[in-house]
Design a protein around this nucleic acid. Sequence first.
DNA 1: CGGGCGCGAGATCGAAACGGTATTGGACGC
DNA 2: GCGTCCAATACCGTTTCGATCTCGCGCCCG
Lengths: 93, 93
Amino acid sequence: MSLAQLHYFVAVAEEGHVGRAAARLRVAQPPVSRQLRALEDELGQALFERTPRGMRLLPPGERFLVYARAALSAIEQGRAAVTEARGTRGNVQ
Amino acid sequence: MSLAQLHYFVAVAEEGHVGRAAARLRVAQPPVSRQLRALEDELGQALFERTPRGMRLLPPGERFLVYARAALSAIEQGRAAVTEARGTRGNVQ
DNA sequence: CGGGCGCGAGATCGAAACGGTATTGGACGC
DNA sequence: GCGTCCAATACCGTTTCGATCTCGCGCCCG
């Protein structure tokens, strides 16, 4: 599992569309498809249902989405706690 | 930033020693040193103080450690929420 | 009912990242 | 001053990643 996979997963979950998610992420579509599949393979469980219209989140995907967002959010907070604390006095929140 | 970097960072923070952390992670010492430096470089801030005895966490490192652990923990929880839910009835937890 | 379209997936290739081994530089202890 | 222990660097082979091109499959439209 990689952070890119988590970013891809969240984007596709939000867009319901690999191509649109790829555009938002500024990458091509095939890498997103491949990483998504690799993620499902690693988890041993399908996260999306492939429809002719795009991707729809399955229940396991919805469960995973919560934690994927939490992880990415924690990383952003950690980055902020280090980066924005340069010269800051006291606690950040 | 990568998940490996977070794992390496937490291990070194806990061991206070790159070599020991590397042994625990079953990798060689240079990759750990390199990834740690890359992480500091990306954050634009030193996380450790290099001493002749090993590595000591600096205040920014301590702040970051909290979120690094949170991110890794969230990923583990997400993995569990998907993996262990195979055939499980009702909520986990 | 057949052609066109939009979607994700697969194949292939070049580039970038990663880890391992070998080695260096620096500080403490004897 | 020499040996030792530490992290850091150099270099190399392998792996992984992303971009481009192409295919297969359903659906909509004519």
